[in-house]
Design a protein around this nucleic acid. Structure first.
Length: 326
DNA sequence: AAGCAACTCAACCGCCGGGTA
DNA sequence: ATACCCGGCGGTTGAGTTGCT
């Protein structure tokens, strides 16, 4: 790494970004294809590290920080793009409940995902629904809702999807990703890292996919890899949104969720209490129902966008309302 | 078709801790 | 001990996109 900088004197990092700013006009904003290739080629030959000097030596009019960010979040060969899978959603929920906004730490458990991506996911998807509920995303109510409702539901959906995958196996040759979700023990927060590693079995995007920029060369500034349709890399659901909680079940959604033997609920850090006591204040269920109705009246397709982006299905709302009204 | 609102996500910013001279 | 530099992290922004009226 950083073995030799033949055509660039080692500057020794005596200048910071601000000083660089003063000395030369630094580019900002979206990266061009040329810049991307310059960075990729430079790192391919010299490796990462010393980002400020790297930027200089590579001839990039960017700050070291900008180069690092571009590389780590976008250009890195193993960066995984596309929809967040159900397993990943589940993992994010679980890890966030444990660590909070430690995006980098959470990202370490989702191979190929960047902290930025997870952070964006959380803000756009999860926080949006906390807003819908008119409760703080950090409130206990909301956390318990995630814990007792979303996560079990995600598990159900993962298992259902895995079953479907098994049934239809053979008809789709391109679906290379498999899931250990079929294993009933796949999700056990008590078995932290080991099982987490098992949960995430989704494949990485190939370096070729990440670097297949040549076809995009006409543009002055593009995002070379994310335009690729990566839906085939999605492990379980083409609509792999946590908020897509529609699940065609006939069973009582509340059943078994609070049994201490339930692997979903076992191991969460807080004391196990019936969530009845939690879903008490501050959640605007009527607003949820209204929102739900308005969305359903518009989108007839259960897998459609309006629905898939909705956190709650009828049963969830019904269940929460019941808990609330008790 | 046009205007507007909501959403997504790449990129930037500021702060902080570790390493080093 | 201290000052400085760098990289990493979490928070925030804003351009582009999508959906709705």
């Amino acid at each position: 790494m950083n073995s030799n900088n033949n055509n660039c004197m080692e500057i020794g990092g005596s200048e910071d970004d601000e000083q660089m700013n003063m000395m030369e006009d630094l580019r900002r904003g979206p990266w061009t294809v040329e810049e991307d290739f310059t960075l990729i080629n430079y790192i391919a030959h010299h490796g990462e590290g010393r980002w400020n000097s790297l930027a200089r030596c590579a001839g990039l009019k960017r700050t070291g920080k900008s180069c690092r960010l571009r590389w780590l979040n976008y250009l890195r060969p193993d960066v995984r793009r596309g929809n967040i899978t159900l397993e990943e959603q589940l993992l994010i929920l679980e890890l966030h409940s444990r660590w909070g906004n430690r995006w980098s730490k959470i990202a370490q458990h989702l191979p190929g995902r960047t902290d930025n991506e997870i952070k964006n996911y959380w803000r756009t998807r999860v926080q949006k629904h906390a807003k819908q509920l008119k409760c703080d995303v950090n409130s206990k109510q909301f956390k318990d809702t995630m814990r007792y409702l979303w996560m079990p539901r995600l598990v159900e959906r993962i298992q259902a999807a895995a079953t479907t995958t098994t049934v239809t196996e053979g008809s789709s040759s391109s679906t290379t990703t498999t899931s250990t979700a079929t294993n009933t023990n796949f999700y056990n927060p008590l078995n932290q890292t080991n099982n987490m590693d098992n949960i995430v079995t989704s494949q990485f995007i190939t370096p070729q996919q990440s670097h297949n920029m040549s076809s995009n060369y006409g543009n002055t500034h593009v995002n070379p890899s994310y335009t690729t349709d990566n839906s085939s890399n999605t492990a379980v659901s083409p609509v792999s949104d946590m908020t897509d909680c529609y699940y065609p079940t006939n069973q009582n959604p509340s059943q078994d969720l609070y049994q201490s033997s339930n692997p979903i609920t076992t191991g969460f850090s807080d004391t196990m209490i019936s969530p009845t006591g939690y879903f008490n204040q501050g959640m605007d269920f009527q607003a949820m129902v209204d929102h739900q109705n308005s969305q359903w009246s518009e989108g007839e397709n259960g897998g459609g966008d309006a629905f898939s982006d909705n956190l709650w299905n009828v049963e969830d709302v019904w269940f929460l309302k019941q808990q609330f009204d008790m």
